[in-house]
Each structure stands twice: as C-alpha cells, then as structure tokens.
Design a protein around this nucleic acid. Sequence first.
DNA 1: GAGAGGCTCCATCAATGGATGGAGGGGTTT
DNA 2: AAACCCCTCCATCCATTGATGGAGCCTCTC
Lengths: 216, 216
Amino acid sequence: MGDETIRVLVVEDHHVVRQGLVALLNVADGIEVVGEAADGVEAITQYRKHQPNITLIDLRLPRLSGVDVIQRIRMESPNARFIVLTTYDGDEDIYRALQAGARAYLLKGMTSEELIATIRAVHAGKSHIPPAIAQKLAERMGTEELTPREFDVLEQIVHGKSNKEIATELDISEATVKTHINSLLGKLGVSDRTQAATAAIQRGIVPLESLRKPQS
Amino acid sequence: MGDETIRVLVVEDHHVVRQGLVALLNVADGIEVVGEAADGVEAITQYRKHQPNITLIDLRLPRLSGVDVIQRIRMESPNARFIVLTTYDGDEDIYRALQAGARAYLLKGMTSEELIATIRAVHAGKSHIPPAIAQKLAERMGTEELTPREFDVLEQIVHGKSNKEIATELDISEATVKTHINSLLGKLGVSDRTQAATAAIQRGIVPLESLRKPQS
DNA sequence: GAGAGGCTCCATCAATGGATGGAGGGGTTT
DNA sequence: AAACCCCTCCATCCATTGATGGAGCCTCTC
C-alpha cells in the first residue's frame, strides 16, 4: 500500500449531511466512499462488509452510539481507524471517543480541505486533534472522575429530583445522597446542584436528550 | 411564473452540510441554488444580490442569528419565503422563527425528497410544519409567556447564580428575585430552580452556548 | 494484612430556597 | 377612571440544601 485509494465508510444519521460528505469525498483524489450507514447497528454491518481503511463517524447515532460502535468494531478489528465528526463540542463525548480509539475529532464546521487532509493523515498513521478540542481535553483531564454512584446522583439532579426523591429512586438514605452530592460538587468544581446540572449538560456528562420524558 | 426554476439561497454555517444541500438541490429538477452564505450578515448580502424565491436557512448562525436574518429581510421584502432548517428541536427557536415569518421548519434528519417537496410546496405558497414540530408548538402555546424580568432572572438561574447574586446583578432586592422565581416556576410548570434551569436549556429559552464563560 | 477508595449511614448546623399573602407605583388598554 | 399587568418590595414560615466530621463495610491492590 501507499498511494492506493483510501476506502472510507461514512456513518451519519442526517441525510443531507451524509450526502454532503459522500459528495465531497468522492470528488477528492485517492478517496473512495465504499459504504454509508445511518445508525450504529448499520455501521457495524457495513464495516464488516467493506472493511474500510477509515470510518468517518458521527457520535450521536440512533440505536447504538458512535462510541459504542467504535468500541465494538475495535474489538474485532483493532487496527480500524476512526475519525469522529460532530456538530458539537461537549467534552465528555470527545473524551470517550478518543478513549475508545478514535484517531481524530472534527467539528462539522470544518472545510472540505481540512476533512480530506485529516483523512489522509489518519490513513498515514497520524492522529489529529484540533487545538480547540485539545484544550478542552486538557481541561477535563484536570477534573477528577465521578464514581458510578456519584454519576447516578448527578443524573437524578439533572432530571430535577430532590434529595428525597433521589434517595427513594436509588434506594439509599437521604444522608448518603447528600454525601455523594457533596463530593460531586467538589469534583465538578461547582457550588450547588443547579450549577452541577448545567455543567453536566454542557459537558455532555448527562445527555440533553434524556430530559424529555426520561427514564422511570 | 409557474414552472419556472425555483431560485434558492442556502444559508448554513457548516461547510459540509451546506455543500451537501447545494449538491442535493442542484440535481433536483426545477431548483437552482443561486447563492450560499455561511453567516447571517452574508445571508442578507446574498439575499439582496440574488433575490431568491426561497431561502433555506439554519437558525444557529455566526454574527447574526437566523431569526434576525428572517426579520430583517422581511422588512425589506415582505414576500420573502423562508424554510428553516435545524439540527435540533428546542422549541423556543421554532416558535420565534415561525413568528418571524418562516414558512416551513425542517430537521436535518429529513430525506432529500422531503426537502425538495417542501421547497416546491413553499414556492407554491403553502406552509409546511412537520407533525412532531407542530406538536411542540402546541405544547408551548399552552405555556404562559415569561415577562422580561422573569426571563432575566431565569437566565441568571441557568448561569448558576444564587438569589443573592441575582439580586445584586439585577440591582433589585432578594425578595423581588424570589417573587420572580416563584412566578416563573409556575409558568414553566416546574417546582425548583434546578428544574427551571434544565427546562430553560432544553426548550432553548436560554442558549446552551451562553454557559461557557458568559456575559458580564 | 495494611492501605486506599468507594459506598453506605449518621447527626448537627447554617445557609439557601420556596410558598404565601399583602402592598404600592407605573404603564397600557378599555 | 377603572382594570390589568408588570415590577418592585416586605415579612414570615417551613423545607430543602450543603458543609462538616465521624463511622463501618467491602473490595482491590500492594
């Protein structure tokens, strides 16, 4: 290999965006779109079928999230290379995607030149993280991890539950809820539950979509 | 007019999305993209220059929001027809866009057929609101309007301020802050400030972007 | 087996938040 | 002018929240 054609799989649920990407890539020299998928499950099917060199993938996908897709594919094909493409820069997702093994992270605002250059770079074995993203990663690195339980509590806070309700929901005492809150406030660097809720949403720790009429 | 070509202006800040739209539309019969803009100011310039039949516009734009663009253009060209295109369905924006005179509202997940059909329909003088959107509009209609002051307070709440801080910021007494909160909680149909904050974000009343390192 | 860290619980206290009901001034509409 | 709404303020009361420090249990690691 070397100057062979780079075979790309495009995974993106928004029709127009996907069609735009495909159109862009197909006019680029040395790049060929070998498959398209509109959701996570389809992405895996298409990957197995086409074994692309590069998978361009949105993180917000129906059925199976981008991060899940990356993880699963990497289990069977550790050399799979992913470029994550997202509208939006809530840091938690970036972090998880890179953890899962994505090689590059691009915002949809990029130009076609950037996109193509990144595909070539990643195919050549390089990684590419834009400065703006790198900075957010650095910020989040400074942040301590929430424990699973703290995360549960945070999720409930975002959903507007009171301490008493959280205690009932998680089947622990209100005192314990307070303990967790106290510790997660510290870790998030905020001083009350409202700030915790907005921080969680903004960082993508708790997905905004879950707010509608969520879990039990 | 009648079976003449429909002249379309595409306003969208994400390169790939814009290119996708243009590519899609240019292969459609009877539709021609006469201009493109990547921000609100450019949109107005392009509109004046090309006088398109239909303007396809994203709401989230740099420099000047989609709603502002629609309002300004409509002042000089009351017959201008807009189709709003958005990734995302926070209701407040929908409402404002339709108020401002948009004829249709589409999510980016739509198919190219839907898009083209909608362009033709709007050009023929019809309006088009997808059922999912119509429902949200209906929901929001049932909701009472916040007064300007209540809105100010809500904004501060979302930014994590305490009542005392809000009082200082808005230069009113803490008692007054509480009065406003009490009334806005009622109008939003929620029972505490945390729920108010998440509701505000989720409905698009207070933009998520303002959370980083915001105002003042 | 001695930490370390996570989860659980406790009590206590101070601060914050929210409900209620009442009140006056300013503006607009009818 | 009367009615209405918004904005402002007040006092009072109770509920919720957050801080602090202490404690036992479990599991994993060294």
